[in-house]
Design a protein around this nucleic acid. Structure first.
Lengths: 229, 229
DNA sequence: TTAACATAGTGTATTTTTCACACTGAAATT
DNA sequence: AATTTCAGTGTGAAAAATACACTATGTTAA
């Protein structure tokens, strides 16, 4: 039987794909490992699950350690358990993705021992990843592609106040295709879950667009009805 | 720290919701436990994952031990990891569902030690379940409800040759609503993934219906296009 | 043999949704 | 005042979804 990892009496871990949206780019947070195995490789942030924390708590902790953020939209999406996915033992990893608003100085924390650095990296320019993390990322991206079609998750990537163009941008980048502006607006507004803030964008060097916010109350009242793109 | 279970050096398990369809009813396989904790309770079939098997293999093994079946449609759908979900220690459980064709003598095997008996039970008449198995079942049912709308999984619950009425039945029971016969047939046939076998149902005491089979080749050629109900 | 029964199988009209498509308007910059 | 940049808007055509009820065929039992 294989050697079990030290430190925790536990053989399962969490890996997180932290998605962030900034200036029209979809990025994820990667760390550069400072420990074997895969020392100096880029990897998804992750950690062993402590004995006294639930999976959700563990994922939230990892996110918090890196970004100091709490109350972020996170979702468990798959568990990876191939026998040899970790070279030092049997580690089953439960994958989560998170969606968060970048911009401003949401830079990740300096990391003590287990990573040299952490950076937001455009999903179109990912380096080679440690372990089976490429596979974990792929499945996570696929997941949000499916989910954005039916669930109001795009708003999690935007600031509270956003323009319709920014919203369309999120859809276009995640779905990886151009959408028609008029049709997008018509459909999006028809769901009745956006609140017109009667307020304009600021600091742009052209005509300012109207700001909207996502109205959770109204969304909750839709019940069965589904958003669909 | 809590005591870890004996027998396996592993603290994760698989639980399976085995769905079967028979005579218009959706059923799952439940076992009556023969061991503490929850001795004499009904539970989902499950087991600890061995160190040398992947999660998928483990799920397939559990299914096989109960039904002698292999090559069944199974899918991992969620991992349950609350700290206290198992009274004797920290056990994270990865949930799978399977879809299989009942009818004939697909009765579950006699079980040696860990269960007294196993039965197919209508999902509308479930007893109280051990552990957090009600929650695991609920999420599994929810999952196939979503999935049947876009993926060709209904066929997994039917014999190879089936009538359109039987197929409609599967949809109605899983989606839990009546569908219009003419619209259902029109739409289903329009996907072009059913092969008319030019053959009639046998042994019925009324006009026999045409038999169809699901044509995987044609489905594969649809690529992006999605089935949608 | 025929009447009763049970389910198979079929078409159309209406409404709703999707899709394709291009210009004018407002604000800022030079 | 001219230029630039993006905001914002409507219509017609095609496709898809929905609502709806009768005839056809085979079996069974009188």
């Amino acid at each position: 039987m294989k050697e079990v990892l030290p430190h925790f009496n536990s053989t399962f871990s969490i890996d997180c794909v932290l998605f962030g949206f900034d200036e029209g780019e979809l990025k994820i947070l990667l760390i550069e490992r400072n420990e074997e195995p895969f020392k100096d490789w880029w990897a998804l942030p992750g950690n062993l699950v402590a004995m006294d924390e639930s999976l959700d708590q563990s994922a939230a902790r990892i996110l918090h350690e890196l970004t100091s953020l709490s109350n972020v939209y996170m979702e468990q999406y798959y568990t990876f358990g191939d026998v040899n996915r970790h070279p030092q033992g049997r580690v089953v990893s439960i994958a989560y993705y998170a969606l968060l608003r970048l911009g401003g100085d949401k830079s990740p924390k300096p990391l003590s021992t287990y990573a040299k650095q952490a950076h937001w990296i455009n999903v179109k320019e990912l380096p080679k990843l440690a372990f089976d993390h490429q596979q974990i990322f792929d499945k996570g991206l696929e997941k949000i592609k499916r989910r954005i079609k039916h669930q109001p998750i795009a708003f999690e990537l935007l600031p509270e106040k956003f323009t319709l163009t920014q919203l369309q941008n999120v859809y276009e980048i995640i779905l990886n295709k151009k959408l028609d502006k008029r049709n997008f607006r018509k459909k999006m507004l028809s769901f009745g879950v956006l609140k017109d803030l009667e307020e304009k964008q600021k600091g742009v060097s052209f005509r300012a667009a109207t700001l909207y916010k996502f109205d959770k109350r109204r969304y909750a009242k839709l019940f069965g009805k589904e958003i669909s793109f």
